[in-house]
Design a protein around this nucleic acid. Structure first.
Lengths: 223, 223
DNA sequence: ACACCATACTAACGACCGTCAGTAGAGCTG
DNA sequence: CAGCTCTACTGACGGTCGTTAGTATGGTGT
């Protein structure tokens, strides 16, 4: 009946060791989470039913419980992918060689590209935090706080080195991350991602993180 | 400005004789919307029931329909207050005397102060757009687009006048507004609003809107 | 070949939600 | 007082939702 095709046996990028599972069963999970993210992004978590998500991947609502133990688990998987992932894969860029400025620029570039590639998941992970279990929400916000702290620290290092001219590295970090995360609200497929990346890295590195220098120079000029 | 305080309603709501409060307040609508905004901000629009909102203002769920024709109307009132209001009250600051920089600074200051004063409404108006009727959502986004366009125009004027050094006034406008609107996600009552206002106006005016100047100067310095 | 297990299905339950109908008391107006 | 309005109440309906139980099926390992 249901013409579920088996062709999309996928390759999960992060499956270090698949425990004795010959079938690529993680793939269906990712497929469901991806479809759910699209729906959540467009209509909101609570207005989307399990039956809606199921239909999008070609099954009936109840069958989703073979892959997720609850609807909230789907949201949790989406949110976790957008917080834990970047922390583990992008944050090492801050430990690489180079000045704080080059390292931060590399991080922001990776961040924005990741956001553009997973726009809906990113949007959902930001917007639907309140729908998570308190424990899950705490875990997500912990990841986010850690990420933000690392950005703050590299900004502080750059300020000490004279690369940045900013007072309040913490506030600048928040401002930069909010500015960048705002992209997920309006990004459309017709936008030029490369251009956006360069614009925003410029806004952050040459703009916000130089604002104290520009401010002093402008004041000196104007008297 | 705050209207009706929570006067003593220590009476069992089931009591056949309800406490007679002084008539004369049309502020009941505002009181309901305000309580609803607090709940929506904390728990999300769909997880908050009419009965929850009602309880917060001392009535039963069905009685809310004497003030709003539907739950969505409550959300609409909140969102409208946070979009139409600023458009009509703050945007005239852009038509006042002064250079583009001083006028834009005045607008951003007013914007952030308004956001801080109505943090929950602002957050809800941003986050729960998807829960609005298509017609209501279109109206809200129209207001927001218009606001954004006006900001873009004053940035373009400042760039022509040499006050700003930015390429792409539209993108800078979006970045600045996203950065500022991000405040509503983390603002707490213990924050110093005045300090935030000055920080963010600096980020925008001396930072993002000067990034092309800073970029060129840094490149010249570094070779 | 057989057992197993992952996965899909159908059917239904219980809870909750937005909303409405109908009612009643208080205050104002004549 | 009579009559109208405003606002709150009770009670309930219809629908939807997340979730569970029980069952069927087909591929896989032994």
């Amino acid at each position: 009946m249901s013409d579920v095709e088996g062709e999309l046996r996928d390759v999960d990028p992060r499956a270090p060791e698949a425990p004795r599972r010959p079938r690529a069963i993680g793939g269906r999970r990712a497929e469901i989470a991806s479809a759910a993210a699209r729906f959540f992004a467009e209509h909101g978590y609570h207005t989307v039913g399990m039956r809606d998500i199921a239909e999008a991947v070609g099954m009936r609502g109840a069958s989703l419980y073979n892959h997720f133990s609850a609807k909230e688990e789907v949201l949790y998987a989406i949110a976790l992918g957008m917080t834990k992932g970047p922390v583990e894969e992008h944050l090492p860029l801050l430990d690489a060689e180079g000045t704080p400025a080059t390292r931060l620029a590399a991080l922001l570039r990776a961040h924005i590209r990741n956001l553009a590639e997973h726009r809906v998941e990113h949007l959902v992970g930001l917007r639907e935090l309140a729908a998570l279990t308190p424990e899950h929400r705490a875990e997500i916000t912990d990841y986010r706080r850690y990420y933000q702290r690392r950005v703050r620290d590299v900004i502080a290092a750059g300020a000490r080195a004279g690369e940045f001219a900013v007072d309040g590295p913490g506030r600048a970090a928040v401002a930069i991350l909010d500015m960048i995360n705002g992209i997920s609200w309006w990004l459309r497929s017709e936008h030029d991602v490369d251009e956006i990346v360069e614009n925003y890295v410029g806004f952050a590195l040459d703009g916000i993180l130089q604002h104290a220098r520009a401010r002093d120079e402008l004041r000196r000029r104007d008297g």
